Amino acid sequence: MKWKKYTIQTTTQAEDFISSMMADLGIEGVQIEDNVPLSNQDKEKMYIDILPELPPDEGIAYVSFFLDAEKEQEALLAQVKDGLEELRLFVELGAGTITQSETEDQDWINNWKKYFKSFAIEDILIKPTWEQETDAGNYRCVIEIDPGTSFGTGKHETTRLCIQQILKFIQPGDRVLDVGCGSGILSVVSLKLGAGEVTGTDIDPLCITASRDNMNVNHLSEKTGRFYQGNLIEDDRLRETVGNGYDIVTANILADVVIPLTPVIPDCLKPGGIYITSGIIDFKEEEVTAAIEAAGLKVLEAIHLGEWVSITAKKE
Rank of each mutant, 00 (worst) to 15 (best):
Gly243Val: 10
Ala313Gly: 12
Gln106Trp: 07
Asn111Asp: 13
Gly26His: 02
Lys315Thr: 10
Ile281Asp: 09
Leu300His: 05
Gly245Asp: 14
Asp256Lys: 15
Thr10Leu: 10
Thr250Phe: 12
Gly194Met: 06
Lys71Ile: 00
Leu38Ala: 08
Asn244Thr: 15
Glu70Leu: 06
Ile50Phe: 11
Val257Asn: 04
Ala255Asp: 07
Leu305Ser: 06
Gly306Cys: 04
Asp107Thr: 03
Asp247Arg: 06
Asp42His: 05
Ile281His: 15
Ile292Thr: 13
Gly94Cys: 12
Asn216Met: 02
Leu93Cys: 08
Leu305His: 02
Ala295Ile: 14
Pro271Gln: 14
Cys162Pro: 12
Leu84Arg: 07
Gly96Glu: 10
Glu28Lys: 05
Ser187Cys: 01
Ile170Arg: 04
Asp107Asn: 10
Ala255Asn: 12
Asp68Thr: 05
Glu316Thr: 04
Thr289Arg: 15
Phe169Glu: 08
Thr159Cys: 13
Ile259Cys: 12
Ile145Ala: 06
Glu33Cys: 05
Thr97Glu: 14
Thr149Ile: 03
Glu307Thr: 11
Gly96Asp: 10
Gly296Ser: 12
Val142Met: 13
Lys2Gly: 11
Leu93His: 13
Ile233Gly: 02
Asp256Glu: 15
Gly29Met: 11
Leu76Phe: 01
Leu305Val: 00
Ser20Phe: 09
Leu206Arg: 12
Phe227Leu: 09
Ser221Ala: 12
Ser118Asp: 05
Gly154Ala: 02
Arg226Ala: 08
Met215Ser: 04
Tyr275Gly: 13
Leu76Val: 01
Val299Glu: 02
Val36His: 07
Pro56Ile: 00
Ala195Cys: 01
Gln79Lys: 12
Trp112Arg: 05
Val80Thr: 01
Ser278Glu: 07
Gly279His: 08
Ser211Cys: 11
Ala23Gln: 04
Phe169Pro: 01
Lys127Leu: 11
Glu234Ser: 10
Ile18Tyr: 10
Val249Leu: 14
Ser211Leu: 07
Pro205Ala: 10
Met22Thr: 09
Ile280His: 03
Ala295Glu: 10
Tyr47Thr: 13
Gly296Ile: 13
Ile124Glu: 03
Leu67Phe: 05
Ala120Lys: 05
Ser19His: 00
Glu92Asn: 15
Gln165Cys: 10
Val264His: 14
Gln164Thr: 03
Glu285Asn: 14
Ser101Trp: 01
Asp107Lys: 03
Thr12Trp: 01
Glu301His: 11
Thr10Trp: 04
Trp112Cys: 04
Phe17Pro: 09
Leu89Trp: 06
Asn138Tyr: 14
Ala255Glu: 12
Lys155Ala: 03
Gly59Ser: 08
Gln171Asn: 13
Pro128Asn: 01
Ile143Met: 11
His304Tyr: 09
Lys113Ile: 15
Glu222His: 10
Gly273Val: 07
Thr241Val: 09
Asp204Ile: 01
Ala23Arg: 00
Trp3Cys: 11
Leu261Ala: 06
Tyr115Pro: 04
Ala61Asp: 03
Ile163His: 03
